[in-house]
Simulated assay, not measured.
Amino acid sequence: MRYIMTIFWSFLIAAAVSYVLSSMGGEPFLIQNAIILTAIFSIVVFVLGDGILKEKAE
């Protein structure tokens, strides 16, 4: 479930960032850019959450 929620929130954040940046640049909003950014955000979060920042068992 955490992977689905991570992808969902990554998509929302990526869509917002993509919309703002395309508006600032005077370009049309393309959903493909948001999907690409979603994939990048999700991969970074998965790597950080499951690998680098994983809590050590005591």
Rank of each mutant, 00 (worst) to 15 (best):
G25E: 15
M1A: 12
K56V: 12
L30M: 10
E58F: 10
W9N: 02
I35E: 02
W9G: 00
F29C: 06
G25L: 15
S23D: 14
T6V: 08
L37I: 10
A34V: 06
I43P: 05
G25N: 14
D50S: 08
E55V: 12
L30E: 12
F46Q: 07
W9E: 02
M1G: 11
L37T: 15
M1L: 07
L12D: 00
V20W: 12
I35R: 06
F8H: 01
G51D: 00
R2Y: 14
A57S: 13
A39G: 10
E55G: 06
I43C: 10
I31H: 05
A39V: 15
L53I: 09
E58D: 13
I52E: 00
Y19I: 09
V17H: 05
G51Q: 00
V17Y: 13
V17K: 04
V17Q: 02
A15I: 05
I7T: 07
M1N: 09
F41E: 07
I7N: 00
F8P: 00
Y3E: 07
L37W: 01
A16M: 10
P28E: 03
Y19R: 08
K54A: 05
S22G: 01
L12M: 08
L30A: 08
E27V: 07
R2E: 06
S23E: 13
E55W: 04
F29P: 10
V44D: 05
L21C: 07
L48R: 09
L12G: 08
V47W: 11
V17D: 02
T38Y: 00
F8D: 00
M24R: 12
P28K: 06
I7V: 12
G49M: 02
E27G: 04
P28N: 02
E55L: 10
I36C: 05
I43R: 01
I52K: 02
K54H: 03
L12S: 07
K56G: 07
N33W: 11
L21G: 00
L53Q: 01
W9H: 05
F8W: 05
T38S: 11
T38G: 02
F29W: 04
V47R: 03
M1C: 03
Y19L: 14
F29K: 11
P28Y: 01
L30D: 14
I31L: 14
T6M: 04
A39S: 04
I40K: 06
N33S: 13
A15G: 06
M5P: 02
F11M: 01
A57Y: 07
I31G: 02
Y3N: 05
W9A: 01
F46V: 15
